[in-house]
């Protein structure tokens, strides 16, 4: 009997001998840098139109009452709309409740700590946010990572059927479930690798184009219904981790479709279609409470901690559980299809 770790090594060899495996992280890095550069240009254009902002900023400490008043007024308006929504019977009215609550709590945090929120008026504020870590967190590459992870996954699982090489792997001193598990380990490893590449390039790209200003500013996160000031590095890691989990949900969907359909074209196409099309289930979840049971609506895990629940009746824990149940079903059908069915020539 062979050694399972060497089987994972073999799957990694298959993965990394493909040129596309090297090209995808490269594209990822280029896209990150490119978007950073574009955003920088955009910020520069807006900035040149209002040169006087820096002068206004130096005055802001003296007229500190101004921003406090703004926040208090904002909170009153938002609280009123939250109260109205709570009484409403319609799901659609209630969808904003959690994110409004988060904004109220954030404002309250600023008021309590007598700290002027950077979002209100700050020259360093731009499309990605006001501080270094805020920008890093708002820079989502989740879609690209998921796309590339799906391509790698369908290549390694369905591709072996499409290219006929699967039969060369079956007659080896390994059980079929071991073959599939080794493939799963390899593609999850690759997804983590892509996420790490994206994260590191984002750290570097943001620093290069926007500087590292505000590195010490903690990030306000919405954790379990209360605001928490989390150190920037920790906050960005948490967001990246949650984004990775979202990617893995789609990866497992692609994994399942690959093992069941055995066609690389079908598995890739359908996975990507569902990843796009799945966002339409948000509309269902916005209007019907059972909509959350369609997992596509729940996969934006990081939104829960950076902006509040995307719709009414969902929490991060519930979203993770629903997606977890789906993932278990994906894996179960993948293993059953892979171990029970004959491998054609």
């Amino acid at each position: 009997m062979g050694n399972f770790l060497s089987l994972v090594g073999v799957e990694n060899t298959k993965l990394w001998k493909r040129v596309s495996t090297w090209i995808m992280p490269l594209i990822l890095a280029v896209v990150v840098i490119g978007i950073c550069g574009l955003a920088r240009m955009q910020t520069a254009m807006i900035g040149s139109g209002s040169v006087s902002i820096s002068a206004g900023q130096s005055q802001s400490k003296t007229v500190s009452g101004g921003w406090r008043q703004t926040l208090e007024e904002q909170n009153k308006v938002m609280q009123a709309s939250v109260d109205a929504a709570e009484k409403s019977d319609r799901q659609a009215d209630k969808n904003q409740i959690d994110s409004e609550k988060f904004r109220i709590a954030k404002n309250q945090y600023y008021l309590d700590h007598n700290q002027k929120p950077a979002e209100v008026s700050d020259s360093s504020s731009n499309v990605f946010g006001s501080s270094y870590w805020q920008r890093v967190m708002n820079f989502g590459m989740g879609f690209f990572i998921a796309l590339f992870a799906i391509i790698a996954c369908t290549g390694l699982v369905a591709g072996e059927f499409s290219e006929g090489t699967m039969k060369t792997m079956i007659s080896r001193p390994f059980a079929r479930w071991q073959l599939l598990t080794a493939k799963l380990a390899a593609v999850i490893g690759y997804t983590v690798f892509l996420s790490v590449v994206a994260y590191l390039v984002t750290l570097g790209g943001i620093a290069a184009f926007f500087g590292t200003g505000g590195t010490g500013t903690p990030v306000l996160m919405w954790l379990g219904g209360s605001v928490a000031a989390v150190p920037g590095f920790g906050a960005s890691l948490l967001t990246a981790l949650l984004d990775l989990l979202s990617t893995i949900v789609y990866l497992l969907l692609a994994f399942c479709l690959s093992a069941v359909s055995r066609s690389r074209a079908l598995a890739t196409g359908l996975s990507i279609f569902l990843m796009f099309g799945g966002s339409f289930t948000m509309l269902i979840a916005d209007n019907f409470s059972w909509g959350k049971l369609i997992f596509f609506a729940d996969t934006a895990f990081s939104t829960f901690v950076t902006g509040g629940a995307p719709f009414y009746g969902i929490t991060l824990g519930l979203a993770l559980i629903i997606c977890g149940v789906y993932c278990a079903a994906f894996l179960a059908s993948a293993y059953v299809a892979f171990t029970k069915r004959d491998v054609a020539g």
């Binding site: 298959k14 001998k17 493909r18 290219e163 006929g164 090489t165 039969k167 060369t168 007659s171 020539g345």
Partner: peptide, 11 residues
């Protein structure tokens, strides 16, 4: 070898 030998073409 069963039927045609299918090996990894890109390697």
């Amino acid at each position: 070898i069963v039927e045609n030998p299918e090996l990894y073409r890109y390697m």
